[in-house]
């Protein structure tokens, strides 16, 4: 059993957009649904960060199903051109837990061009924040246009940063065509159920 035998969800997006917050919302739900889940965080900066990450899932996941992967200051390389170290970490998960159902791979924060290698992620979510500017979708970055699901997070901040959610919705619909996008506020959990529905439908029941 190896990385090819387990479902893999990639979560990418710029620094501070809410990728980790989304992972923290997704994991308890997937565990609650009965799935055995592994989590890989790219670009933790210190062992202290790794410990914080393990602590946050201490009651949900075995410690050896939470792993940090350093990508040598090249987050996009780690998820796109050369995902070998992430795949190696998934191989280690599956060796220790042969019944593993799904692995969430969180990319280090990157730019709007970062996309997941399809051999690393069966399903790719790209997380942006309204606080990064309402014009992010219409810039048509490959992350925004190619992701299986675009997640527009921190909707609660929109009035404080002069971001118009209607503009973001219109532009996201235009640049993504028929591909889905979801508004979320991972802080209070709104919109997260819709993300879970997509993941369940497109990855786990596929």
């Amino acid at each position: 059993m190896g990385y090819r035998d387990v479902a893999k969800i990639g979560i990418g997006g710029p620094v501070g957009s809410g990728k980790t917050a989304l992972v923290r919302r997704l994991v308890p739900t997937l565990v609650d649904e009965g799935y055995e889940v592994g989590v890989i965080a790219n670009d933790i900066m210190t062992q202290e960060d790794a410990d914080v990450f393990r602590d946050s899932f201490a009651d949900l996941l075995p410690e050896d199903l939470v792993e940090g992967v350093e990508t040598g200051a090249c987050p996009h390389t780690g998820i796109r051109e050369d995902p070998s170290m992430n795949l190696a970490a998934i191989d280690e998960f599956t060796e220790r837990h042969p019944n593993l159902d799904v692995v969430i791979v969180e990319s280090g924060g990157d730019n709007l061009a970062a996309t997941f290698n399809p051999e690393l992620a069966d399903y790719f979510l790209f997380v942006i924040s309204v606080a990064e500017g309402e014009d992010i979708p219409r810039k048509r970055g490959p992350g925004v246009t190619q992701a299986d699901l675009l997640v527009v997070n921190k909707t609660d901040l929109a009035p404080h940063v002069d971001a118009d959610l209607d503009v973001i919705e219109r532009d996201a619909a235009e640049v993504r065509g028929d591909d889905p996008f979801v508004f979320t506020n991972c802080k209070d959990g709104s919109g997260v159920d819709e993300v879970i529905d997509h993941v369940d439908r497109e990855v786990l029941f596929a």
């Binding site: 992967v69 990508t71 040598g72 090249c74 390389t77 780690g78 051109e81 050369d82 070998s84 190696a88």
Partner: peptide
């Protein structure tokens, strides 16, 4: 360095 064996993660 294009060879995908994770060389960029090692120092």
């Amino acid at each position: 360095s294009f060879l995908p064996v994770g060389g960029y993660t090692a120092s």
